[in-house]
Simulated assay, not measured.
Amino acid sequence: MSGLQPVFVHGWACGPEIWHPVQAALGVTDWLSLDLGYFKAPTHQPQSVAATNFLATQDKQPKLFIGHSFGFMWLLSQCKIPEGSRFVGINAFGRFAATQGYEHGVPTRVLQRMQVGLSRNIAQGVNAFRARCHLPEVTEAICQPAALHDGLEFLAQGDVRPSLPPLVQNKSLLVLAGAQDPIVTPALTEAAFPAGVVCHWQAQGGHMLPQTHPQFCAEHIRTFL
């Protein structure tokens, strides 16, 4: 590809495994997947590192940052972005929750109900969300409550929209979206990014493009680079 090391960041209530189809489709070997710690990690996860460890040891080499959903907002807010880096947001957004002047965001009450649901029954709350994404259920034993609650709080408050215009101006941002996404709707996608962003739509795609349409993702990433 371009010589930039790909760094993948998954979304809320997911894990690094969502990227395996895209990584295979890209045919690259020198990649990293960051684990945001929502679930106890399997014993063998090659090239997967805890997000906190990555932040503590991050070097100044430019990267190709690829974020899914919440993972895109997280990486723009947390990572020290080396000059020359490029970004791909898949089912992504600059802000998730609605606020004044941003009515297409998800109402805060929805996120509050999700927090209450997690507090009552963490596996049930997580699996209700995963079912909307057509992901398999997880067990309570692997759930990490603190990380899941913190992630939801960040979804309610996080906002990286001010960081996006320079990326669009420098042509260093690609957005891939699903026209059938029930979580990040087309209206939310359009509101969440500035005018002029390069956005490609998968007409039949839902919220898990890395799983359902890995070739679509890989082809657009290659063209972008």
Results as ranks from 00 to 15, higher is better:
residue 1 M to Y: 06
residue 1 M to F: 03
residue 1 M to N: 08
residue 2 S to T: 15
residue 3 G to I: 03
residue 9 V to Q: 07
residue 9 V to Y: 04
residue 10 H to T: 10
residue 11 G to E: 10
residue 13 A to E: 06
residue 14 C to E: 15
residue 15 G to E: 03
residue 20 H to A: 15
residue 31 W to S: 11
residue 35 D to L: 00
residue 40 K to E: 05
residue 43 T to V: 13
residue 46 P to W: 08
residue 47 Q to W: 07
residue 48 S to K: 08
residue 48 S to C: 06
residue 49 V to N: 04
residue 49 V to Y: 02
residue 51 A to W: 00
residue 51 A to S: 08
residue 52 T to C: 08
residue 54 F to H: 09
residue 54 F to P: 01
residue 59 D to I: 03
residue 67 G to F: 00
residue 69 S to Y: 02
residue 70 F to E: 08
residue 70 F to N: 10
residue 70 F to Y: 13
residue 72 F to C: 02
residue 76 L to N: 11
residue 77 S to Q: 14
residue 82 P to G: 10
residue 83 E to V: 08
residue 89 G to R: 01
residue 94 G to K: 04
residue 104 H to D: 12
residue 109 R to W: 14
residue 111 L to A: 11
residue 114 M to W: 15
residue 114 M to C: 13
residue 116 V to H: 15
residue 119 S to Y: 10
residue 124 Q to A: 15
residue 127 N to D: 10
residue 131 A to T: 14
residue 133 C to Q: 11
residue 134 H to R: 15
residue 135 L to K: 12
residue 146 A to N: 07
residue 148 L to D: 09
residue 149 H to V: 07
residue 150 D to H: 12
residue 150 D to L: 06
residue 156 A to H: 06
residue 158 G to H: 03
residue 160 V to W: 03
residue 163 S to D: 13
residue 168 V to F: 00
residue 168 V to Y: 01
residue 170 N to M: 02
residue 172 S to N: 13
residue 177 A to H: 04
residue 177 A to M: 01
residue 177 A to D: 04
residue 180 Q to G: 10
residue 182 P to M: 11
residue 182 P to C: 13
residue 187 A to P: 00
residue 189 T to K: 03
residue 193 F to V: 03
residue 195 A to H: 10
residue 197 V to I: 07
residue 198 V to L: 11
residue 206 G to V: 06
residue 209 L to P: 00
residue 215 Q to P: 03
residue 216 F to S: 07
residue 218 A to S: 08
residue 220 H to P: 01
residue 224 F to M: 00
